[in-house]
Amino acid sequence: MELSLATRTVADHTVVEVGGEVDVYTAPRLRERLIELVDAGARDVVVDLERVEFLDSTGLGVLVGALKRLRTAQGTFGLVCAKEPLLKIFRITALDQVFPIFPTVQAATERDGSGLAS
């Protein structure tokens, strides 16, 4: 399935809903969208991966790029993911120790400080 991207605002956070396959072909579109959002002033960004069917190293690289960009901009960055196959990818790459990962959008957008990117 092709990549789908939708953006909405939840509790002062910019939530990017990603669907379909994030791979070496489609990841540049996700990168562009995230850069556009930060350039437009978004500082608390959550990427919702619940509808993602496939995620590869290129997609992971884009997510780390966004994390760094927001850290530089004094912002926050979090992921929403509860799917075991995707969580396994984060564990194997040790990126589960880099990203704040939440089970729901609500948990990711609660302002308790746990979503801090830095």
Binding site: S57, L60, V64, L67, T93, A94, L95, V98
Partner: peptide, 29 residues
């Protein structure tokens, strides 16, 4: 495989990160 504390290091380019993560996935799966 890149150690966790280097994954988000500012000095690591996105291409290098992708390469390291890609190999970690191959070796892991």
């Amino acid at each position: 495989k890149l150690p966790p504390d280097e994954l988000a290091a500012e000095s690591l380019t996105e291409d290098d990160l992708t390469t390291g993560v890609g190999f970690a996935l191959l070796a892991g799966f």
